[in-house]
Design a protein around this nucleic acid. Structure first.
Ligand SMILES: [Mn+2]
Ligand SMILES: [Mn+2]
Ligand SMILES: [Mn+2]
Ligand SMILES: [Mn+2]
Lengths: 215, 215
DNA sequence: TTAAATAGTTAGCATAGACTAACAAATTTA
DNA sequence: TAAATTTGTTAGTCTATGCTAACTATTTAA
């Protein structure tokens, strides 16, 4: 069985591969808050396990085997988050740290039961897709709210950033997944957006808009 | 934060202290399936943390601090087992291995929520008491079925042994907690018992009877 | 296109937690 | 009670995973 450490590395590498395709040592070190030499030795180990392709000084590439293994861990993470929100009444800002631990539990039955009780959800509470048991994952086809034009009416589908602070900010503005948002105005200077949704009218910063994924 | 290893040692020591008051190195080694020197060095570490009293060649004694810490882990274990059975539909023979992992999750909110959703249960699916948040634990005041006499009518309250095989055996005989059992006959030679309960009439071996706790 | 900055690597070390081999103390058995 | 057995301890080793310091390769800026 792989250690929690290995699983956490692999997950970070997988996520960085999605974002940039080219994964580098420094990015992993920052994401995991470990030193560069620690990453270097773990990367060699993962390569030895056939999960990465590693050549000195070259960007890292995750293998298909690595991708699948990572996706299965992410599956457990996201199912857990969904379960905590839907079945245990937690807020979407409370679940990540718990899921970060539960994702390492070794018990197919446990996660399969969550999946079943949830009715086989496709997305987690933050709108990210839940990989299937084979490690296949739907690609996000949403655009950023920041790329929308005045007059458009869109639906909030997912978040591209899920820090506690951001989620609490969204709570404070009653911004939830599924709400319909109308873009009223875009300020040319700073790209701030005036939007209307569910009885609210708010001005959202360009930073916030860039993290909101809509369709 | 204490490691999973430390927590598992402490739990074993706590349980042995309940059973015998005198805890010895060999017993811990057997329970955890590790070598004697491994236990010896961990025991010194736990003593250094103030969780045990250790003197060379003397039986170990768990401290009040150690007892409380152990009971809090056991609380998480037993709440988890109860949650898995009551809220997720697992059988009592399926939950121990999952709880063995979940008991190490660091999140008071997670276990408090389980507790709340379960309605603050006093006992786990095997009838063992669930310690409270301060590490206080009710003492079992049940007697073994093996100590009962013919003609007595008792209620099955808990198990003093909870291996998968034993639980599956109980499943096969429809023996569940809460059922009323009448002792019909005790065979003098081997102490086998003929009992009746819920439409069943069975002969239970002395070994089985010794593991069934009743009131 | 050289110099500076950044990124990646290696060597060496630390800690946690496991192990075996060798030995010592305590207990049991003859 | 002396011998045999069991129990506990010490010393030394190993693997996993981290670290810092020193160095090298690559990339960026002057
Ligand atoms: Mn998460
Ligand atoms: Mn994790
Ligand atoms: Mn258990
Ligand atoms: Mn455990």
């Amino acid at each position: 069985m792989n250690s929690q450490s290995i699983e956490n590395y692999l997950k970070v590498i997988f996520n960085q591969a999605i974002a940039t395709d080219e994964v580098n040592t420094t990015g992993i070190a920052q994401a995991l808050e470990v030193s560069l030499p620690s990453v270097n030795s773990m990367v060699k180990k993962l390569a030895g396990m056939g999960l990465l392709e590693y050549q000195k000084y070259k960007p890292l590439k995750i293998t298909e085997k690595g991708r699948q293994m990572a996706a299965r861990i992410i599956r457990k993470h996201r199912l857990t988050e969904m379960y905590l929100v839907e079945k245990m009444g937690f807020g979407w800002e409370e679940v990540h740290d718990i899921a970060e631990q539960l994702e390492h539990v070794q018990s197919a039955a446990f996660f399969d039961r969550m999946d079943e009780l949830l009715g086989y959800p496709q997305r987690d509470p933050h709108g990210s897709p839940i990989p299937n048991k084979n490690g296949q994952i739907a690609t996000q086809e949403y655009q950023s709210l920041a790329d929308c034009r005045p007059g458009e009416q869109v639906e909030l589908k997912a978040l591209s950033h899920t820090s506690d602070e951001f989620l609490k900010y969204l709570n404070s503005k009653d911004l939830k997944l599924g709400i319909k948002v109308e873009i009223l105005e875009v300020e040319a200077f700073d790209r701030n957006m005036k939007v209307a949704y569910g009885g609210h009218q708010e001005v959202l910063s360009a930073l916030v808009c860039s993290k909101l994924l809509v369709s």
